[in-house]
Design a protein around this nucleic acid. Structure first.
Lengths: 229, 229
DNA sequence: CGGCAGTTTGATCCCGGTCAAAATATGTGG
DNA sequence: CCACATATTTTGACCGGGATCAAACTGCCG
């Protein structure tokens, strides 16, 4: 196993209040692992034996319904912790985490969480801030789902994605991991047909450009207006 | 201001790991206040100067949309903390808290949260467990909203309500605070007309009995089946 | 008793789901 | 490098759940 350069991690909010020395100690206890696109990092209901830090790529958090449908709860961008049920008093993972692209993770045994939280200033604080953000995001999701039409939900979902994991390209801002119509429909509670129709329409109007598994937002401003109608 | 009997609070999970002495100290720093049905305890966006413990009654947490619609995020039953943005790194309240019935609260200045969290074993742990539960609830809300039909969402919402704040009465289990068709529609992302139609239908079939601002579930089992179809 | 808040019921309409089928990419093995 | 299998996207036709509009009804409070 390679040693990881602690300088890469120091800029992360999670470690911002720590000494280089401390980050080194934390890293030395971590396991490093790569996941291929589509593979699961952990499964809903499984014993939460480890918690993870996403070094690179994007994690898609999904839930399965009784009848086998799957819906996307959130996407996690690089730099964030996930699978931290321990921090919230859980012993099992509340959802399944899938690699939305090639993914690089660090992970630690759940047991060390308490030690980290008490020993390292800001570690718990930053984590809970992140939890707060996710709570907020879920909250707006609920509001959206109850009040917004499909067109607006999809527009907002795309904006959220480029906000979290957008990459500037020539034609606009691209979603930095492969994403299908089906994925978008699972994020917004619709069907892939509806998503396809809308993307086609938007492409005709110059709002987006979309290829297979790829979406580029050309005109975020216009999309934002659509999302608020 | 009356002294509050600490024996009332000792059974709460929040205080379960504390000495009587410590609970007394915590209580002595609290302000006690009553809110009438419909009045706001705090408003979305306002500076989070205090956090609250709900002694009696039910709190309805609502969010307002851009166009003035309001949707209900969750209900908080007696015994729980709320308005604890500080624990999640927030400085403002993320939603509005309204008294769904007559309500009795204790509250403390936000500043003392850190002290409580570090000083009193289990205080932080219990709080975060609760946050975890709310995260879970919001998560299932999102799943529900994306996959369930209106009938199922309403059935589940009612079941959740009697689960959290039900009161056994002669004909079945009653929701222990006044609740209108409109309230239910705001919880489920529908319209009061649809809720009314369904409740009428269910009443005809003996599943519920509903009066003005009052709903009694006569047959939770049957409703549970409906909610899973 | 008047007025308001809450509820019921009917009629109509349309968004978006469902079913179906074809078109277009991508990958794989020979 | 081609042929075939599979994954993804597109487009069309149809239909139904539930929103919307409208109006009457009921219980409650001052």
């Amino acid at each position: 196993m390679h040693k990881i350069d602690e300088n890469l991690l120091l800029p992360l909010p999670l470690f911002s209040k720590l000494e280089k020395e401390q980050v080194r100690t934390i890293l030395d206890q971590a396991s490093r692992r790569r996941f291929e696109t589509g593979s699961a990092v952990f499964h809903e209901g499984a014993l939460a034996e480890r918690f993870f830090l996403l070094l690179d790529g994007t994690i898609r958090v999904i839930k399965l319904t009784a009848d086998g449908e799957q819906i996307t709860s959130i996407h996690i961008p690089a730099g964030q912790l996930f699978g931290i049920g321990k921090a919230l008093g859980r012993t099992t993972y509340p959802a399944t985490a899938v690699a939305a692209s090639e993914v690089l993770t660090l992970s630690w045994p759940t047991d060390v969480w308490d030690k980290f939280a008490t020993k390292y200033t800001g570690f718990a604080t930053e984590t809970y801030k992140m939890v707060g953000d996710r709570l907020g995001e879920l909250n707006t999701r609920v509001v959206d789902m109850s009040t917004q039409h499909v067109e607006q939900r999809i527009a907002r979902a795309l904006l959220r994605l480029i906000d979290q994991s957008g990459r500037q390209v020539e034609e606009g801002i691209e979603i930095s991991f492969p994403i299908t119509r089906k994925d978008v429909s699972e994020m917004t509670g619709t069907t892939l047909q509806t998503v396809s129709r809308l993307l086609s329409l938007w492409e005709k109007n110059g709002l987006v450009i979309s290829k297979r598994k790829k979406i580029i937002i050309c005109n975020p401003h216009q999309l934002n207006i659509l999302g608020k109608m």
